[in-house]
Design a protein around this nucleic acid. Structure first.
Lengths: 251, 251
DNA sequence: ATTGTCAAATTGGCCCTACCAATCTGGTGG
DNA sequence: CCACCAGATTGGTAGGGCCAATTTGACAAT
């Protein structure tokens, strides 16, 4: 019963448009150079400033609150939280979704975290993978083969493979983090695989890794993952140097 | 200096009361056994059912949407997302905040993730710590000493120490994850340190770790962290046994 | 019976007004 | 100088209303 399979969609990024109010508030904060502990204008004031209803403001603030970027104090105001201490991973995902470009340090840190989590994760996957995990991995590989053959953008297939491996760790917490991870880097991944040249190598490495995982050779799988990630790092840093299109700079 | 000190507050958990609406919606979903892809009642219906205004419902749904538990489709409805594939770490934090107990598997996975991140993180901290990081670590240690001496609950001091180490990694992404991590486990940590017996040992281990980090001996620091975490795991599993009936040992 | 078409109901997105309770502010009286 | 109180401010919330897009179902044409 796996015919109607979730289909690894190939979409560039998000054409979102969704809640630009959050983006506008973030831009406002950046523009005013507000920092931790400072108070935002009242909801009524923000509503007037952005020419929206107070409800819309409240929803946007609720979003910012759940990612721990602000704190609402009843009868007092809305205060910025220490983003470097309190911020959640979703705050980064949110920013990425809104088109705010990550700075170089953040991307480097992202790469490092990816290495830590995925190398260890791949080892766990090699130890614990169940048949359904291998099935998902195989499906991802198959989709990857087709994509490489067709010359389409490999980004979605790459993400799906890594997510499948993360799922095979049987650790839902790790899976959640890796998931957020690929969500927030999807635009960059898209550009990374923009020319079809990197896809074949990535696919080969994926296949080798899958073999090791399937064979239960956790150490080998982890080593392959480390090598795989390392082989991409140089390109990532190169990508960092370039200016990505699509970002409405909010510096 | 110490008067207006960031104050490592010692509070049991959350006195929250805040957004029980989210909790009620979650309970509703659980009660109806709604699963991935299914549609929730319309906002108007939910508002009527819970006897609140539609605004309140919309804010709650906005929160659930930002942690990727639901998806709002304009002019169509609100749909549950695949929580096992899409859920964010903040979804767990949210649940913990709302008092929903984590199941045994989730706690085991949390422990495992903690090991992966903090052992690697401590190594990085040993390599990169700056003076301000050491200062924060020292402050945490000092607070810990006072707390141990006073016989107060050590949970907040424990968290602060680990967060200080995470900060010393100079990797904000890792820091965010570890932060979420301690947020969502704070209640359990509170119980863990309920009797004052574990605090002195934890404090000793913290001090040793801090020495290694200060000396720049990353490998030793990582090893100490691994041992530190391992020494607590047994108690965590014991805690699990008490709170949750029946249990298959985590492999 | 099948298909095409269109209007009504439904739904999320959003605005607006109003009220509450707690907080904050400033001025007044002791 | 301090204690105290009233008015302004603020987040929390209810409820009504309008819009645009989708969904639905009845009706008509083939």
């Amino acid at each position: 019963m796996s015919p109607a399979h979730p289909a690894i969609s190939v979409r560039p990024a998000r054409e979102d448009e969704r809640s630009d109010l959050v983006a506008r508030i973030l831009a406002f904060v950046a523009d005013r150079r507000l920092t931790s502990g400072e108070r935002l204008p009242s909801e009524r004031e923000l509503a007037e400033r952005f020419e929206v209803g107070r409800n819309a403001i409240r929803e946007a603030i609720a979003v910012l609150e759940t990612v721990r970027m602000v704190e609402r104090r009843p009868n007092s105001g809305i205060y910025l939280r220490a983003m470097d201490r309190d911020g959640s991973l979703d705050a980064l995902v949110l920013r990425a979704d809104l088109g705010v470009p990550l700075d170089e340090a953040e991307v480097s840190e992202l790469i490092e975290m990816r290495r830590i989590l995925e190398v260890q994760g791949t080892e766990l996957a090699g130890l614990r993978r169940k048949d359904e995990d291998l099935a998902r991995i195989d499906a991802a590989l198959e989709a990857g083969r087709r994509t490489v053959a067709a010359g389409d953008n490999f980004a979605a297939c790459d993400a799906e493979f890594h997510l499948a491996v993360a799922a095979a760790t049987r650790n839902s917490v790790l899976r959640r983090v890796v998931n957020s991870f690929y969500l927030l880097s999807r635009t960059r991944r898209w550009h990374y695989f923009a020319d079809g040249r990197r896809a074949p190598e990535a696919q080969r490495q994926h296949e080798a890794m899958a073999d090791a995982i399937r064979a239960g050779d956790a150490t080998a799988a982890a080593g392959l993952m480390r090598a795989h990630l390392q082989s991409t790092e140089a390109y990532w840093h190169e990508l960092l140097q370039q200016r990505l299109p699509g970002g409405k700079a909010a510096s």
